[in-house]
Write a protein that binds this DNA or RNA. Structure first.
Lengths: 228, 228
DNA sequence: GGATGCGAGATTGTATACATAATTGTATCT
DNA sequence: AGATACAATTATGTATACAATCTCGCATCC
């Protein structure tokens, strides 16, 4: 995105930039993230690149293989289930809190997210739409005023994007579901219980739209062998 | 602990070692973690020290101040509440899963944890006892076979140890509560619902044993004010 | 002809050197 | 004597250099 030489990149901003690229599926699972290459792209030394990759590694968005380098993570079926289990524990209750606390301003922000998401979809920018869709969930955690939980959800949302990249089965109509619109109306009514239920079902819908039957497991090493 | 020159430290093992020291209150909140000093202690260069400190920073166990260095984190009252909110969302349901899945071997491991914890308490090693008490919670997440949630809980548990260091009010009798024993008996009965309730109450007890009313902040902010 | 072993190239792992910012001590001025 | 400005020191931020390890091609041997 911003690879101008005059841009003052920090380890954090590079990590954010890469995270966004991963979230938007511009960097698909398994992509090699070479240190020299990234250093040249951003005009920084390997020191900062490594710091950024370590950050992403800690968020499980990047997998490190000793003496092999960093790769965009390829969540296994098992990890995929775990991610959605965690989201099921965290997000419904957080949505309830958010619905009970949200201000008109918050609702305006959420509406703007949805508008931008629909615009991106209409323009065929699926990655950007996915990113905005995820940001919607993170925004809810922010509204709930729970920065710790928000940090967890943020990580889980981006990992979900990787999972969607690997296991999505419904080719057409990615986010035609109006779950987010329904959530907003619950927010407007300040109906925490409804918001909690809607979020729970929304996550279940997401999970069932994935194809996690794949028993073969170990996609990592197998896919890795083919990718090279 | 292990500062022998022959020991081959990695960034991860150094981070683990420091995390344990923080968990055990050997490194109290606010402690300056100088890079050169740590490098000398472990016999490694600042490169690895910085990597370890970055890991701890991402887990919110260490706070980085630009051009000032790294310090053991000093959670605010607000952060303390957030940490226990998050634990309240994650741990009870995880305890339920664990109770329904646990094997006799798992129970033996948990019993061993409690035994070691009591032994440490009897020996007056409060820090070690606190560490073991926290590990008990992490072990439950492992038994539930949820590594993603376990990672979150692990972070929250160590942050809780920092919170206890700052806000604990009951001076005497740290963990005389038999909450962990009660949890084990629920596990033996495979009573998931009971385990969930016990965990919920255990966390509530922990929270109410803290003094979070203090709006005037803590020694942390005082020390901070003086530092300037 | 196929498989195995070896070596050149490339990439990551770690340490060190340099640059930059903050702190502290000192000297001077009012 | 107190305060302020400046210099020296210390510590962090970043880049670069060196070492270790892996990949891949090529030659050799069976």
């Amino acid at each position: 995105m911003n690879d101008l030489p005059g841009n003052n990149w920090t380890a954090e901003s590079v990590a954010s930039d890469l995270e966004r690229a991963i979230h938007e599926h511009r960097l698909p699972p398994g992509t090699k993230l070479g240190e020299d290459e990234l250093g040249e792209v951003y005009g920084i030394s390997r020191t900062l690149v490594r710091a950024a990759l370590q950050t992403l590694g800690h968020r499980r968005l990047v997998e490190h293989r000793r003496n092999r380098g960093a790769f965009v993570a390829q969540p296994t079926v098992r990890e995929a289930r775990e991610v959605f289990e965690a989201r099921a524990l965290l997000e419904p209750r957080t949505a309830r809190s958010a619905a009970e606390r949200c201000t008109p301003q918050d609702i305006a922000i959420l509406r703007e997210h949805i508008r931008a998401e629909h615009a991106a979809l209409a323009a065929g920018e699926h990655g950007k739409a996915l990113h905005l869709s995820g940001r919607f969930h993170i925004e809810i955690a922010r509204i709930a005023d729970q920065s710790t939980i928000a940090a967890f959800i943020s990580e889980l949302v981006v990992r979900s994007s990787l999972i969607i990249a690997l296991y999505w089965q419904r080719r057409a109509a990615m986010c035609e579901s109006h779950a987010h619109d329904a959530l907003i109306s619950a927010f407007e009514k300040r109906d925490g219980g409804l918001a909690e239920d809607l979020m729970k079902n929304h996550l279940l819908d997401l999970l069932t739209s994935l194809d996690l039957r794949n028993v073969s497991e170990m996609p990592g090493s197998l896919r890795e062998a083919l990718a090279r």
